[in-house]
Design a protein around this nucleic acid. Structure first.
Length: 244
DNA sequence: CGCCAGGTTGTTG
DNA sequence: CAACAACATGGC
């Protein structure tokens, strides 16, 4: 199957529009850092664990709130499987609280830390030794980790070739006309996999750029009049979908 | 104030 | 299997 060049063209367009995102951020001293030099090397096990925690915390939640929670976890030295297991539910929940759904997320983190400890000898990096597919199955078998959370950990933590699909991806690309309206996660991901050569930096940035697009112009009520993709977007034609 | 955030799980028809 | 509720805080 020949690739649809639109996928790479849209990436280039978003890249020009929004610039480099340098995802995934790492929290240091309470601040999310987006550093290019950080992307130039593989993640450390500590960073991978933090990415996993952030990926769980950001489920249906604004990153701003996740940032507060991560900062609180950092301050309480709760950014390791060992520390999370040792902490009381109450203490962990207090740090997680700003990210919302704190009871659920506290439980997810506890269970996650428990499995990392029991099945991976406390080192999340050991997961990658299973290879991409087995790593994904391991994550998906976990209560509280669905496809987007798993793929975020796999792509941003391990550089494994899984495109991260989120609500913004579904919304924007169905508006553009490159995806059907209510496509399933797997189907959307397959479309991206089929139309983009794997390049970890490109795939990471692409997802980050789609999030930026979704927050900037392609909102639930979109601003098509100032969207950099308007000329190639089916939904923005004739300005029919422009906001008031 | 109401809507929406970088989803996932459980329940029901 | 699709549709829907539950989960919760904080920014705009």
């Amino acid at each position: 199957m020949p690739k649809n060049p639109a996928f790479l063209e849209i990436y280039r367009c978003l890249s020009l529009c929004y610039g480099r995102r340098n995802w995934w951020p790492i929290v240091r001293d309470g601040v999310s850092l987006y550093l290019p030099e950080f992307l130039a090397r593989p993640r450390t096990p500590e960073e991978i664990f933090e990415i996993a925690v952030g990926a769980i915390l950001t489920q249906n939640t604004a990153w701003k709130n996740v940032e507060k929670a991560l900062a609180a976890l950092e301050k309480s030295e709760l950014l390791s499987a060992r520390a999370i297991l040792a902490a009381s539910d109450a203490d962990l929940a207090e740090a997680v609280r700003p990210a919302g759904y704190y009871n659920q997320k506290t439980k997810k983190l506890k269970l996650f830390a428990r499995r990392i400890t029991d099945e991976l000898k406390g080192n999340i990096f050991a997961l990658s030794q299973k290879g991409p597919e087995k790593s994904r199955e391991w994550l998906l078998s976990h209560w509280g980790i669905g496809p987007e959370t798993a793929d975020s950990i796999l792509l941003y933590g391990f550089s494994f070739p899984f495109f991260v699909v989120d609500a913004y991806t579904r919304r924007s690309f169905s508006r553009i006309g490159l995806l059907p309206n209510n496509a399933a996660y797997t189907s959307i991901q397959r479309t991206f996999h089929e139309n983009l050569e794997f390049d970890p930096t490109l795939w990471r940035e692409y997802h980050a750029l789609i999030v930026e697009l979704g927050k900037d112009t392609c909102r639930s009520s979109p601003f098509c009049n100032r969207c950099c993709l308007a000329t190639r977007c089916k939904s923005a034609e004739q300005g029919t979908a422009s906001a008031p």
